[in-house]
Simulated scan of single mutants.
Amino acid sequence: MLDFLKKNFLFIVIAVAVVFILFLNNDKVKENDVHSNKVSLQTPAVSKEKEENVSSAAVVDVKGAVVNPGVYEVSLESRVNDVIALAGGFTKNADQTMVNLAQKVQDEMIILIPRKGDPTVSAAQSGGSGARKIRINYASQEEIETLNGIGPSKAQAIIQYRDEFGLFKSTEDLLEVPGIGEITLQNLEDRIQIP
């Protein structure tokens, strides 16, 4: 046997070296696979975190009688009052009675602060043809019933749809409400505001 080992020593050493190299390479491949899996598992978490940050903010356009009108990014938990504070507050001639300061903001919302004596405000208060727009996402049944072609049953259907499926994103979403067709929507478009 000793004689066999002496004659084949070189082959045995080479065979052990090959097995050793293969064993080390296999461990490195496994380590790289584990590292790749960790990276791929972490990637969705990072993108999910970004999505949560995006979805928890609203971009709001503040116009009219505020010190610094403009576009502001705020939390979706913010109220109109918070956004007006960011805009520097009301000017001296702002008509604060026409604004719901407690309303929660939503993305792409326009907050228009009228000035005292503004003709569009006077027309809205007197119920003239230039009456203010109804914010369909927040309007009461009575407010919705003031719209052309909307009676109690259609107003209730609008509110029920809004409660079940969430806020309307566009005027076309009203077509999903039972009883609202193209013609009714055309009559409403000038009198409703979304958001």
Rank of each mutant, 00 (worst) to 15 (best):
F4G: 07
K7I: 14
K7G: 09
L10G: 00
F11M: 05
I12M: 04
V13E: 01
I14D: 01
A15E: 01
A15L: 01
V16Q: 05
V16D: 03
V16N: 06
A17F: 08
V18E: 03
F20H: 00
F23N: 08
N25V: 08
D27T: 03
D27N: 03
V29N: 09
K30C: 08
E31W: 08
V34G: 00
S36T: 09
S40R: 09
L41R: 07
L41V: 13
Q42I: 09
Q42A: 15
T43V: 10
A45M: 11
S47A: 02
K48N: 10
E49Y: 14
K50L: 14
S56E: 11
S56K: 15
A57M: 15
V59W: 07
V59R: 12
V59G: 00
D61Y: 12
A65L: 13
V66F: 14
P69A: 15
V71A: 13
Y72L: 09
Y72E: 10
S75Q: 06
S75L: 13
V83W: 08
L86E: 09
G88Q: 01
G88N: 05
T91L: 15
T91Y: 06
K92Y: 03
K92V: 06
A94W: 01
A102N: 07
Q103L: 07
I110V: 13
L112S: 09
I113S: 05
K116R: 14
K116P: 04
P119W: 08
P119R: 11
V121L: 04
S126I: 11
G127S: 03
G128A: 12
S129V: 14
G130K: 14
R132K: 15
R132F: 12
R132C: 12
I136E: 04
N137D: 07
Y138D: 06
Y138H: 15
I144N: 04
E145D: 11
T146K: 13
T146E: 14
L147D: 04
N148M: 09
G151Y: 05
K154W: 01
A155R: 02
A155N: 05
A155D: 03
Y161C: 00
D163V: 01
E164G: 02
E164F: 11
E164K: 13
G166H: 02
G166P: 00
S170M: 10
D173N: 02
D173W: 02
L174D: 02
L175R: 09
E176I: 06
G181I: 07
E182W: 00
L185T: 09
L185M: 10
Q186K: 12
E189R: 12
E189Y: 03
R191F: 14
Q193C: 06
I194T: 06
I194L: 03
P195Q: 02
